[in-house]
Simulated assay, not measured.
Amino acid sequence: MNSSKMTNCDRKNADIVRQHTIQLLPITIAGIEAVNANSNISFGRHTHEQFGIGLMDSGGQKSLSGRGHVEAKAGDIITVNPGEVHDGTPLEGPRAWRMLYFDTEIINRCFSDISDGKFASGEFALPVSTNACMAGIFNQLYEAINSSNGDAERLAADEAMLVMTKALAHMPRPQMKMPFKGVLLARERIDDAPGSDTSLSELAAIAGLGQFAFLRAFARYSGMTPHAYLLQRRLSLVRKLIRGGTNLVDAAIASGFSDQSHMTRMFVRSYGYTPGLYAKQISGI
């Protein structure tokens, strides 16, 4: 393009440089992952199988969450519950954040402890919290987990985890309006065999609905279309297989992706880093 004929919009777009760095930190505590990120890219709708607690270190982002659309800025605590559909778009320029992801049994043990055994599960009620004290608690938790090389550090991590969970906990889980039973059966079909081929007509038949009625009912219940939900379940299966030592090519095929490159594109779109990097982090390289 002739620079003399560039519009203001062209110049503005040309000035936008993709910035994206995600570091997976080596953690010795089973069931915990730590991510350090700095990025100006947007993440599409996706889910995690774990609880997530993070801190926005700089910049800001807007996102869809389990409580609707929210905005988080530097100093804010951000959370996500297992299976909760969310996305993320930078507000202005890059934003930096740190996340800790916990297997559900770890946080559920915290829920049980802080409720004196009354509740074995719960959820994080606030997708964004501006409480400065909680930011300090997160920093203590993050530091303890990332330096957990001995009994003293593990004790500090366990204590900080309980304090953080108590500050964020909402129990008991509110009752959800159950969808039409057929929608649950169709979702179970995806959950039971995410690597297998399926179709909208097959899922609608399982639900006992017309295809369009099923599409609307499924999206209303799960927050995403059946296809998007299937991709998330496949990505969860990929992560499980990688943790079990399966190589990337076999993990892609077993999870229903056409090839490794397709799996990698979907993995990066949801998590911001490649399955290869995840495999290295798991193997301790």
Rank of each mutant, 00 (worst) to 15 (best):
G195A: 12
I137V: 14
S148Q: 09
L203A: 00
M171C: 02
A152W: 07
P226S: 09
G195D: 10
E159Y: 06
L230R: 06
Q232R: 04
P127T: 03
L155E: 15
R220Q: 10
A125P: 05
A167N: 12
L231V: 06
S236L: 01
M176V: 11
Q140F: 10
N131K: 03
G208P: 02
A186F: 01
F180Q: 11
T130M: 06
H227S: 09
S222I: 06
A213H: 05
E123W: 09
P179V: 10
D197A: 13
P179Y: 01
F180W: 06
G208T: 09
A144C: 10
F124H: 04
A120P: 00
A132K: 13
S201K: 05
A207W: 01
S199K: 01
A135S: 14
E159G: 02
A144F: 12
M224A: 15
R216E: 15
V238N: 08
Q211N: 15
F214H: 01
A207I: 06
E143G: 07
M176A: 15
A152M: 08
N139P: 04
G210L: 13
A207T: 02
P194D: 09
R173N: 15
S196Q: 10
M224D: 11
F212I: 14
K177M: 07
M164Q: 03
I190V: 12
G150Y: 02
T130H: 15
L200I: 09
S196W: 09
P226W: 09
R173H: 07
